[in-house]
């Protein structure tokens, strides 16, 4: 029985500035925001929707009749945030509210800057605090303040402004950019953790499935054909063959290696499944199916719990493996 160690985990951050094209209704709304004006749209039942909706909630018909509304309105309900999360409009304690602007029949969701729950109530009149430099984005409404608020509270801390997009020649805002940054904790299975810890010691550690007896590297929390964790540990050499490969010539966002380079399925001697890695140490067009390769390890001081400890695989110069010996791994 293998002793359990805590599985490995590490931060996973994903971030992208999403570009959202708007279509005619939202483009008009955003363009108006850039001019510090708020526009709604009339629904099939006569209600004025703010923010505007492209399609009527009841009839699903496309809506077209814009209606300008006030930047002053009434709080319909609210909730309190003691600890704002990243990206929220006010980066100190604040209230979310559904606010019906004068001239509108539906409520807009936004933030209200007040210093405590004592300072806000349903029915309260609030007005827009515009961003200093509106760009045509919902955050041009920086937040709301009580309608009778003076300057004594000062500006609330706000998150970074979204990047502005190029406008059409007539000034219309056709797209908005919304950065989305998320932080996760990424974990790997206990089985893969053992393999990664072995890599940190310069060892290739696979595991055998107790049912099909195939040797998996990396080992698996569940053998994909039997649905049970792999168990028996198998030390594997750092030599093997290229089963198949591709020469990457295309650059792309997020790429970590300069093209051209060869990504290949490497089948270690004694393993029953190949993994993807790089083949260097020869010209890309010299890489062959069946070519014998050996791991080129990074200097020991750079080792961590990752297959990246192997910088790449390189040819050993031995004769190629016959096709029949690996045909069933393609």
């Amino acid at each position: 029985m293998i002793t359990e160690e805590t599985p490995l985990h590490a931060p996973l951050e994903i971030g992208f500035d999403y570009t959202r094209s708007l279509g005619p209704v939202l483009a008009h709304f955003m363009t108006q925001l850039a001019n510090r004006r708020i526009t709604g749209i009339r629904g099939s039942d006569g209600r004025v929707h703010v923010p505007p909706v492209e399609y009527d909630p009841h009839t699903a018909e496309a809506l077209t009749e814009f209606v300008d509304v006030s930047d002053v309105g009434t709080v319909r309900t609210w909730s309190w945030v003691s600890h704002p999360v990243e990206g929220q409009p006010i980066q100190r304690p604040f209230a979310w509210a559904l606010i019906t602007l004068d001239g509108a029949d539906t409520a807009l969701l936004h933030a209200v800057d007040v210093d405590s729950t004592e300072q806000i109530h349903t029915g309260m009149r609030v007005r827009v605090r515009w961003a200093d430099e509106p760009v045509g984005h919902i955050t041009d409404i920086a937040y709301f303040v009580p309608a009778d608020a003076g300057e004594e509270r000062g500006d609330a801390p706000t998150p970074p402004r979204p990047p502005a997009t190029e406008r059409a020649e007539d000034g219309t805002v056709r797209t908005v950019i919304t950065p989305i940054q998320l932080d996760y904790t990424h974990s790997v299975s206990p089985e893969e953790s053992r393999y990664l810890r072995a890599l940190a010691e310069g060892r290739m550690l696979g595991q055998r499935c107790p049912e099909c007896e195939k040797v998996y590297i990396p080992p698996r929390g569940a053998c994909p054909t039997d649905g049970v964790p792999t168990t028996t540990e198998v030390e594997l050499p750092d030599t093997g063959i290229v089963t198949t490969f591709c020469i990457v010539n295309v650059p792309f966002l997020g790429q970590r290696i300069q093209p051209p380079y060869v990504t290949a399925y490497i089948l270690l001697d004694g393993a029953d499944i190949p993994f993807l890695h790089l083949v260097l140490g020869c010209e890309a067009d010299e890489v062959r199916m069946g070519m014998r390769v050996r791991a080129a390890w990074k200097p020991r001081e750079e080792w961590e719990t990752s297959l990246q400890n192997v910088s790449h695989f390189e040819p050993t110069g031995e004769p190629d493996a016959p096709y029949d010996s690996y045909a069933h791994h393609l």
């Binding site: 959202r20 923010p51 945030v81 969701l109 919902i138």
Partner: peptide, 28 residues
């Protein structure tokens, strides 16, 4: 915070309204 990505991505999502606050609006 992740759940705020379920809201309208043009006029609500960019404000990151968290799921607990949305429920609070409803509760009140």
């Amino acid at each position: 915070r992740v759940l705020s990505l379920q809201l309208d991505p043009y006029v609500a999502g960019p404000l990151w309204p968290d799921s607990i606050s949305i429920a609070g609006l409803q509760a009140r």
